[in-house]
Simulated scan of single mutants.
Amino acid sequence: MVQIGYTLMTEQAGPRELVRHAVGAEESGFDFSVTSDHYFPWLRSQGHSPYAWSLLGAVAQATSRLPLMTYVTCPTFRYHPAVVAQKAATLQLLSEGRFRLGLGSGENLNEHVVGRGWPAVDVRHEMFEEAVTIIRALFEGGHVTHHGKHYDVDSARLWDLPDAPPPIGIAVSGEQSCALAGRQADLLIATEPKPELLSAFDRHGGTGKPRVGQLPVCYDTDRDAAVARAHDQFRWFAGGWKVNAELPHPDSFAGATQFVRPDDVAGSIPCGDDVDAFVEAVRPFADAGFTEVALVQIGGDQQEPFLAWSEKKLLPALRDAFA
């Protein structure tokens, strides 16, 4: 059975609204939730970007069943890995064991703000693996001292450590990141339903571990309105991660996607209220072998209608299709 999740997309709603959406997702019957961790929105039209970790602390208190997860946090530039470990351990305690720490190598869009530059991808992967190693060491308890190529840790210790540390998920997009995930991750994270990613993950040690995908959708009873909203706020998605990781500003994404047409967006994102179209959009993830798929409803002011529709129609149809 494929579990169906809900995305708290910080780029398109303020913090109080996002907490309300999380409560609604729990009440509607979603199996889990994921939360983006950004400093900027992708496009100005999205209009938000509150601090994900404050949001998650509030959501942990406002909900009682819904599993939580960062999707994803970059532990290399804005945050030192020792600080990420502390935040994740605290959130695992606050949520009483409902938290998973999703990690990725990040995007220039969010990480440039601390003024440390944006090195080549091989260097970023090297930094990322070192950061994950530090986080895992701190999760094991005791004092950690580390003097590596990219990070120093001086006698750090997590004083409030849960009995079971948060499982670590690693976002993948190619062979190199799949190899890292196979070695270091408890679960795989991906935004594209590519079977070759899962095969590579398995080759490097990921066999039997969960794999979580994500799918943007745009529910609206008016399909034309849904297509227009998806184009306005989510056309950045067409760039692919090799491009998305490099652009430094929402205006860069606007320029890079200026020739993307509404029909191009509607060709890859289900828009409207045809349940069958949404089910078929999830199918490639299920067929590839993903065990979980988190949906992103586009439009911060369109979450309540989507949650109501999901409870009545979409979630039952998805469970029937992928039981």
Score class of each variant (00 low, 15 high):
A25H: 04
Q3G: 13
S177H: 05
T207D: 00
D273A: 15
R157N: 13
G174H: 01
V123N: 10
H143D: 04
H38E: 07
A317H: 06
N110E: 06
S155T: 00
Y39H: 12
F234P: 01
Y39I: 02
G47C: 03
A277G: 10
W159S: 11
T291W: 08
E126F: 04
H204S: 14
P67E: 09
K312R: 13
A200G: 13
P316A: 14
A321G: 12
D320H: 11
G24H: 07
D224C: 08
G148M: 10
E140M: 13
A13F: 02
A245S: 13
P165T: 12
C218M: 09
L180H: 04
G106T: 14
W42F: 15
D222G: 02
D220Q: 06
Q233G: 03
T63Y: 14
P284M: 14
A156P: 05
V59K: 14
E140I: 11
I134P: 15
L68R: 00
Y51T: 12
V121E: 15
A317P: 06
W241S: 05
T90K: 03
A245C: 08
F234K: 03
A58K: 11
L161T: 04
G141V: 14
A62N: 06
M9G: 12
G141S: 14
T207E: 03
G289L: 10
E129N: 13
L101P: 04
E311G: 09
V121G: 15
A52D: 12
C218E: 05
E107C: 03
A58G: 03
A137Q: 08
L315F: 10
G106V: 07
G213H: 12
R65K: 10
G106K: 14
D37T: 15
Q176E: 15
G104N: 06
V2D: 08
W309V: 10
R20W: 05
L18Y: 02
R116I: 02
E111T: 08
V19M: 03
E126I: 00
G299C: 06
N110D: 04
T63V: 08
G5I: 05
E129K: 12
R223F: 01
A82H: 08
P262Q: 05
R78V: 09
W159C: 06
D163K: 06
P165W: 01
K194I: 06
S45G: 00
